[in-house]
């Protein structure tokens, strides 16, 4: 599902404004001059991808950040990650780029080990 050959990173020109009081993050996308309101899951994915992460690295970071017993995820952490990534890609807040195969293989091996 999350290929090691894909790298996820924030789209350029985003300004994130966490609104912790409401459990959401408002994002200003300067390129489109649009505001988006993200739920906690999408906000987390976007924050994790600030510097860019491969698919497996994103999955690992997500697992580490989200407690398995998180009631909001209803026991479906992988599904929630997938939904959050799809939402962010659809809104062009997240980019996915291919990475060189050697780098991807090395990272995949490291992740499996």
């Amino acid at each position: 599902m999350f290929s090691p050959s894909i790298r996820y990173s924030q789209a350029p020109g985003l300004r994130l404004r966490p609104v912790r009081e409401l459990g959401v993050c408002v994002v200003f996308a300067a390129e489109e001059a649009r505001l988006y309101r993200l739920n906690a899951q999408a906000w987390l994915v976007l924050a994790l991808c600030r510097e860019g992460l491969s698919g497996p690295a994103l999955q690992a970071a997500w697992r580490e950040a989200v407690a398995p017993e998180d009631a909001a995820l209803e026991g479906r952490p992988a599904e929630c990650l997938q939904q959050a990534v799809e939402l962010l890609l659809a809104r062009r807040l997240l980019r996915q780029d291919g990475v060189a195969s050697q780098e991807a293989l090395a990272e995949a091996g490291g992740g499996d080990g």
Binding site: R15, F28, A30, A33, R34, L35
Partner: peptide, 10 residues
């Protein structure tokens, strides 16, 4: 306005 451009939703 140029000073605000790209930093705020206007």
């Amino acid at each position: 306005l140029r000073h605000a451009a790209g930093r705020f939703h206007i």
